[in-house]
Every structure is written in C-alpha cells, then in structure tokens.
C-alpha cells in the first residue's frame, strides 16, 4: 500500500508534500510522489527541476521514508497521472494541494483537484497552502 502525492514546486504543492510525509510516517507506507508535465510548453514551471528533486529525495532519505519519485511527461493532465499512479501503486490515500480558483477560471481551465476527488477510488486528502 502506498500514499500518492501530487507535487508541484509551489506553496500548495509543498504543503501537500509536507502533509503526505507526515501521513507516510504515521502509517509506515511507501510515498509515491508524482510531478508530471503535459510537456506541451517549452517551459513548465510546475515541472520540478533536478535540484529540487534531489533536495526532496535527500529529505526523504533523511527521514527514512520509502519513496518513489515519478516525473511522467506523456502529454497527460496532472489529474490523470495521479489517478493512474493511484491505481498502479494501490494507493490507500491521495494527497493533493488546493489553490484558489475563480469560478470563471475553473469553468475554462477545469480543475485537476475536482477530477481527482470525483474519480479516485481511495480517500483523497486536499491541503491548502498555509497562508
């Protein structure tokens, strides 16, 4: 069993990761970190860079958490990547970060969080960035 966390290098992404680490320590589960990009822009700020990932793995090593960091770039939306990983690694919990969206923005852009909440077959923990 494992805990899946959707990670992006932003405040809400870090908040989700922090919480996921706490959960993983509690339940002694493996932590699967998903940081995906659709790969359709030349630069994707939500795609974590190598230094970021290495400091992240160092931290997890230090805290002694079994972990797996995945950075799929397959043209899929972040929500699909998280859901697919949840299926594959038999997730007991998905942790995601929430950001504020205006209703119009949500209408046009859709919401990854909403899709995960609706389609996941395990509990989903949604975390907000500490203001």
């Amino acid at each position: 069993m494992s805990i899946i966390v959707g990670y992006i290098p932003t405040a809400e992404g870090t908040a989700a990761l922090d919480r996921a680490i706490t959960e993983a320590q509690k339940s002694q589960s493996r932590l699967v970190i998903i940081n995906s990009s659709r790969g359709d822009a030349i630069v994707d700020k939500r795609y974590a860079q190598a230094e970021d990932i290495s400091s992240l793995t160092e931290r997890l090593d230090r805290e002694g958490i079994e972990h797996l960091v995945l950075q799929p770039v397959r043209g899929n939306d972040a929500a699909n990547e998280v859901l697919e990983a949840a299926e594959k690694y038999r997730a007991e919990l998905i942790v995601i970060g929430l950001r504020r969206r205006t209703p119009v923005g949500k209408l046009i852009m859709g919401s990854a969080a909403q899709q995960i909440l609706l389609e996941a077959s395990c509990p989903v923990l949604a975390v907000k960035a500490s203001a």
Binding site: R38, D40, G75, D77, I108, M109, G110
Partner: peptide, 12 residues
C-alpha cells in the same frame, strides 16, 4: 492534432 485535449476551451 498537436495534443491539446481541452476541447471546450480550444473551441472557444
């Protein structure tokens, strides 16, 4: 064709 799948947004 280039891989975007936001049908509604793209249509608009």
């Amino acid at each position: 064709a280039l891989g975007s799948r936001h049908y509604v947004r793209d249509g608009l």
